[in-house]
Amino acid sequence: MKVLVCIKRVPDTGGGFRLTADNKRVDTTNLGFAISPHEECAVEEAIRIIEKHGGSSTVLTLGPMAAQEQLREALAKGINSAILLEADDYESWDARAVAHAIAETVKPMGFDLLLFGNESADVCNYQVGLRVAHLLDVPCVSGIKALEIQNGKAIAKRESSEGWEVYEVSLPAVFTVKEGINVPRHPSLRGIMAAKKIPIEQKKPIRQNLQMARKLLKKPQEGRQLEILGQGVEAVGKVAAKLRELGAI
């Protein structure tokens, strides 16, 4: 079994955003970076599938040189090899261009299973995995929270308000994963050391003409006025009164 997992490097935003002076980007000067949450689970799923069924796993990202940090994290957890599609201007790529570049790279590699996140935390496009599936002419189920491989087939489950939707598709196939499918492991110290020795394959992807152009980012209106009810246990009388006023008791 050959498994590919595609990830995105996103800023670890914590409690708030600062925008750059031109209002086009999130100011990441003092921020760390992480693998986008759904994709962190896709990485874990890829590792578990190889642990269970044997084979090899590859992690891929389209991003700047610094995205090697996220590739190394995936390697440290147990992914076998890594590909960086190096693009410093990755933030201006639209989802269509990203999908074309990924499909072009992976088409000759013959993966049985290709995992993506359902949507990235930052731009929330909800489409790269689905587009890659189309370009490779393989089936895709999006937004899955359970995956099982049996005899060349995959059973994938989506969660809806009513219950679990169960899909069965033949491999090769693409799945876009949602957080909750598993609880990702932390890399071990040994894993981190071993990952340093794995070479990252670097390629310059071809960017198709862009069809979308970001003009600016802005913050939505937030209209709450804070009232401090008190400090410490002395505040509980006021809190209980407020709960009663709001109909909670």
Binding site: T13, F17, V26, A121, D122, V123, C124, L210, Q211, M212, A213, R214, K215, L216, L217, K218, K219, P220
Partner: peptide
């Protein structure tokens, strides 16, 4: 359109 689940908004031009 929404970015970051709606905590930021993006104005974007569509050329196609």
């Amino acid at each position: 359109r929404t970015n970051w689940g709606g905590s930021l908004l993006e104005e974007t031009e569509i050329l196609s």
